[in-house]
Simulated scan of single mutants.
Amino acid sequence: MSAVDELLAAVLAAAEDEARHDSSPTVEARHLLLALAGEPEAITQAVLGPVGLDHQGVRAALDREFEHSLSTVGFSPATYALPRPSASPDHPRLGSSAKLALERGFASVARKKDLRQAHVLLGVLRAEVGSVARALSLAGIDRSALVDRVREGLARSERPDGEEAP
Rank of each mutant, 00 (worst) to 15 (best):
residue 23 S to T: 07
residue 72 T to A: 11
residue 27 V to Q: 11
residue 145 A to H: 07
residue 95 G to K: 10
residue 146 L to P: 08
residue 136 L to P: 09
residue 73 V to C: 00
residue 75 F to D: 01
residue 142 D to P: 08
residue 52 G to E: 10
residue 141 I to V: 15
residue 109 V to C: 07
residue 123 G to I: 07
residue 57 G to R: 01
residue 24 S to N: 14
residue 148 D to P: 03
residue 120 V to K: 05
residue 111 R to H: 13
residue 126 R to I: 05
residue 49 G to E: 00
residue 135 A to Q: 13
residue 147 V to H: 04
residue 100 L to W: 05
residue 28 E to W: 01
residue 9 A to R: 13
residue 9 A to K: 08
residue 140 G to S: 11
residue 64 R to I: 08
residue 111 R to Y: 15
residue 83 P to S: 13
residue 108 S to Y: 03
residue 115 L to I: 13
residue 145 A to S: 12
residue 44 T to L: 13
residue 141 I to R: 11
residue 146 L to Y: 11
residue 82 L to R: 14
residue 42 A to C: 00
residue 116 R to H: 09
residue 83 P to H: 12
residue 83 P to Q: 10
residue 17 D to L: 01
residue 129 V to C: 01
residue 97 S to I: 07
residue 50 P to Q: 10
residue 69 S to E: 13
residue 53 L to N: 07
residue 151 R to L: 15
residue 24 S to D: 15
residue 100 L to V: 08
residue 70 L to E: 03
residue 133 A to S: 14
residue 99 K to M: 09
residue 144 S to V: 09
residue 137 S to K: 14
residue 22 D to T: 02
residue 37 A to S: 15
residue 136 L to M: 06
residue 17 D to C: 02
residue 92 P to C: 06
residue 153 G to T: 08
residue 30 R to D: 10
residue 139 A to M: 04
residue 46 A to Y: 03
residue 100 L to H: 09
residue 9 A to V: 05
residue 96 S to E: 15
residue 25 P to W: 12
residue 46 A to H: 11
residue 96 S to W: 10
residue 15 A to K: 00
residue 63 D to M: 04
residue 101 A to M: 04
residue 59 R to P: 00
residue 139 A to S: 14
residue 62 L to F: 04
residue 143 R to H: 08
residue 121 L to G: 02
residue 153 G to F: 09
residue 84 R to S: 13
residue 52 G to I: 12
residue 78 A to L: 12
residue 102 L to I: 13
residue 72 T to I: 06
residue 37 A to M: 04
residue 55 H to R: 15
residue 120 V to D: 02
residue 120 V to S: 04
residue 87 A to G: 05
residue 53 L to R: 12
residue 87 A to Y: 00
residue 66 F to P: 04
residue 135 A to G: 10
residue 43 I to L: 03
residue 91 H to T: 11
residue 90 D to F: 00
residue 78 A to S: 15
residue 125 L to Q: 11
residue 63 D to R: 12
residue 20 R to K: 08
residue 89 P to I: 03
residue 132 V to F: 11
residue 151 R to Q: 13
residue 102 L to C: 09
residue 25 P to K: 11
residue 87 A to N: 01
residue 142 D to E: 15
residue 118 A to M: 09
residue 29 A to R: 07
residue 13 A to R: 07
residue 103 E to Y: 11
residue 60 A to C: 04
residue 146 L to F: 10
residue 125 L to K: 06
residue 119 H to W: 11
residue 63 D to P: 03
residue 89 P to G: 05
residue 153 G to E: 02
residue 26 T to F: 12
residue 147 V to K: 06
residue 79 T to A: 09
residue 19 A to L: 05
residue 62 L to M: 14
residue 94 L to Q: 12
residue 44 T to W: 02
residue 101 A to D: 09
residue 84 R to Y: 05
residue 44 T to F: 05
residue 140 G to V: 10
residue 135 A to N: 08
residue 53 L to G: 13
residue 116 R to F: 05
residue 61 A to D: 12
residue 44 T to K: 07
residue 28 E to L: 03
residue 123 G to A: 09
residue 59 R to H: 12
residue 46 A to L: 06
residue 19 A to M: 03
residue 140 G to Y: 05
residue 20 R to T: 00
residue 139 A to Y: 02
residue 37 A to T: 01
